[in-house]
Design a protein around this nucleic acid. Structure first.
Lengths: 329, 329
DNA sequence: ATTGGCCTGGAAAGCGTTTTCCAAGCATAG
DNA sequence: CTATGCTTGGAAAACGCTTTCCAGGCCAAT
C-alpha cells in the first residue's frame, strides 16, 4: 500500500508538504502543489482515513439510531426511506454512517452505549422514532456527549437539534379536508402510542379542529397498531361520521374493518406510505417525505458538528389522496 | 479521554501488558490480569478502535452494497430486511457495517471504488441484487481485492462466496403446488429481468416442471415490474390456466389485472414479502427469509475474512400461502 | 546595508494502539 | 551448583497521517 511517505519521496518534498497539498492548506505554492498531485495520481495514492482520523482526532462517522422491529407489521418502509436519505446525503457530505437499531442498545446503560459509540469514533447520532420509554437514549441526549439530531421529538440543547413536520397543523389540515369533503359532525380519532412524541401533537391538531368546527370528537388509542385500529373501528365507527387515524397503517386497519362491517365511513391517515397504494381504496393522508427529512437531519447534524448550536427544524408537509395509479407511476 | 497509557501507569505495568490483557494474550499471569482489569473498570477505559486498527492493520468494517432505487415501486421491503439481518449479525460478530447503494458507485471506475472502500478500511463487502449490467461491481469481484459475498448470483472465487436459495427447485416447487391444486394444463410464466441472475434459474425451474408434467408453457418477461406483469396478464392470461410469476410484486400486478378483467386464474409468486398480505387475496409463494439470508451472508463474509476459501451456500426455502391474518399476527 | 515581515517548506512530535523482541526470574534437570 | 527452558512483563518500533513550530529565502522599507 502506497503511503504519504512514498509520495513525499517520489516528489522530493517533505511528508508534511504532501499532507498540506492533500488538505488544501494555503501555504504551499502552485508549483509544488501540481508536482505533488502528479505523483499522487501516478502512484495511485489513496489516503488512509483511519490514520488521518487517529492523528487529527476527527472522524466523519455518524450513527443512525433506528427504532426498528421487523415484527411490527409492515411499517419498516419508513425506516428504509430514512436510511436511504441519510446514506445519500452522507456520501455528499463525505461522512460515513453506521446503522444501529435501538433494540441493540436498549439493555445497555448509558456508559456502555457512550463507550460503544466513542470507541467507534462516532461524533454524531441521528435518532429516529424516539419514544418516552427509551430511557437510555434520553440519557444519551441529556449527556450532550454527542452531537445529536432527533427526528420527530421535541428535543433541543446545545448539541441537540430536532426535526419534524408540524404535526399539529398537519393533523388539523388532513382532518379538516376529510371532514369538509364529507360534511362530518362526529369524528372518531384513533390516536398513536401514548409513548410516541408525535401522538400528543397530532391529538392537539384534531382537538383544535373539532373545537373550531364544533364537532363531536371521540378519541381511542390505536397504539400505531393496524390490528388495534381495526378493533376500535369495529367497536365505535358505526355511530360516527368518519375515522381519522394518526397513521396510515392504522387507517388501513380501520378501512379493512369498515369493509368487513360493510358500512362506509371516510377514513384519513397520516404518513403517506407506499403501502397505502396497495390496499385497494384511496384516502386522504399527510404525505411526509421521509427521505427528505433524513437528508435534512444529516445536514443539521453536520451543522452541529461544525459547532453551531442546536435548534428546531420544521419541514413542510403536503396533503395527498393516495391512489394505486399514482404510486406505481 | 483515558488511554491505555493511563491504565498502565495507574496499574504500575507496561503499556504492552495492558494491551495483552485487553486482547486476551496467554502470557500474562492471572494476578496482573485482574490488577489491570480492576484499573480498566475504575478508570472507565474504553479502547480506541481507530488507533487499534491503524496499528494492527485490521478493521472490523464491512460494506453492504445494495441495489436500491426508491422509485422502484414498493420493493424496498426486501432491502430493509437485508439490512436488518446484516446489522444484527454484525453486532454479534463485533463488526461494523456501512451501507452503500449501488447507484452511488455506478458512475465510478473500479479504481475509484476500490480506493473508496480501501481508504475507509473496509475489508469485506456483501453485494445484494447484482445484475449482469453492474459492470463495476463485477470488476470489483474479479479483482479479488476484497473479501466478498454475493447474494443471489452464482459467483465464487478465492475470496468470493455466494449465497441464495435453490431458485430452480423453489420455482419448481411453488409452481408444482399451484398447478396440482388447480389442475392446470397451460401455464403463463412471467419471468424476471433478463439481467438478474435469478431470472434464468427460476426459468429453468418452471421449464423443468412443464417438461415433466407435459404442460404448455408461455413465457413473457415482466422485468420484475408490477406494471409490466399487469400488462402481460391482461394480454395473455385469458387463454391460460394459471399465472406463475418470478416475484411477488409481479404476482400482485397479475392479480390486479385478473380482478380488473374479472376472470379467475390461480396466481403464484416468489419471495414472500409482507406486502402480499395487504392486497386482499392470498396465493402460493416461495418464502425467502431475507433476514436469515443476510445473517448467513455476514457469517460467510466473516469466514472469508478469517482466510477460508470462497464457496457456494444454499439456504432452504419454504412454500407458504400468504394471508392477511398470518402476517399481522 | 540592515532590519523586519511574509511566504514556503521541512523536521519532528504526537495520536493510541499492536506486536516483536528481549531480559529477568524462576524452576527443573543433570 | 550449573545449565536449560519456560514463563512473565517491559521497551520500543511501527502503523500513516496531522499539525505545530521553526528556518531559510526573499522582498520591501528604513
Amino acid at each position: 500500500m502506497v503511503s504519504i511517505k512514498d509520495v513525499a519521496r517520489e516528489a522530493g518534498v517533505a511528508i508534511s508538504t504532501v499532507s498540506k497539498v492533500l488538505n488544501n492548506y494555503p501555504n504551499v505554492s502552485e508549483n509544488t502543489r501540481t508536482k505533488v498531485m502528479e505523483v499522487v495520481d501516478r502512484l495511485g495514492f489513496v489516503p488512509n482515513a483511519v490514520a488521518a482520523s487517529l492523528s487529527s482526532k476527527k472522524t466523519g462517522r455518524v450513527a443512525l439510531l433506528i427504532k426498528f422491529n421487523l415484527n411490527t407489521e409492515a411499517s419498516d418502509e419508513i425506516s428504509m426511506q430514512y436510511i436511504s436519505g441519510a446514506v445519500h446525503r452522507a456520501k455528499e457530505l463525505q461522512l460515513d454512517v453506521i446503522t444501529v437499531f435501538t433494540s441493540m442498545i436498549e439493555d445497555m446503560n448509558v456508559e456502555e452505549v457512550t463507550s460503544y459509540f466513542e470507541s467507534q469514533g462516532i461524533k454524531g447520532i441521528i435518532v429516529y422514532g424516539l419514544t418516552t420509554k427509551d430511557k437510555v437514549v434520553h440519557k444519551l441526549i441529556k449527556s450532550e456527549h454527542f452531537k445529536m439530531v432527533v427526528v420527530d421529538a421535541p428535543m433541543t440543547g446545545d448539541s441537540t437539534s430536532c426535526i419534524s413536520v408540524d404535526n399539529v397543523q398537519a393533523q388539523y389540515d388532513v382532518a379538516k379536508k376529510t371532514i369538509t369533503e364529507n360534511k362530518c359532525k362526529k369524528v372518531l380519532y384513533i390516536s398513536g402510542d401514548e409513548n410516541g412524541y408525535v401522538t400528543a401533537q397530532r391529538l392537539e391538531g384534531i382537538r383544535k379542529l373539532c373545537r373550531e368546527k364544533n364537532l363531536k370528537l371521540t378519541v381511542r388509542s390505536g397504539k400505531f397498531s393496524e390490528l388495534k385500529a381495526r378493533e376500535i373501528t369495529m367497536k365505535f365507527a358505526k355511530n360516527q361520521d368518519c375515522v381519522v387515524c394518526a397513521s396510515d397503517l392504522m387507517a388501513i386497519g380501520a378501512m379493512k374493518a369498515l369493509i368487513e362491517m360493510d358500512i362506509f365511513r371516510p377514513v384519513c391517515g397520516f404518513d403517506g406510505i407506499i403501502l397505502m397504494g396497495y390496499v385497494g381504496k384511496q384516502m386522504n393522508t399527510v404525505k411526509q417525505d421521509f427521505v427528505k427529512i433524513s437528508e435534512e437531519a444529516l445536514d443539521e447534524l453536520n451543522r452541529l458538528m461544525q459547532g453551531q448550536p442546536g435548534r428546531e427544524v420544521i419541514l413542510p408537509h403536503t396533503l395527498v389522496r393516495m391512489k394505486y395509479e399514482d404510486i406505481i407511476k
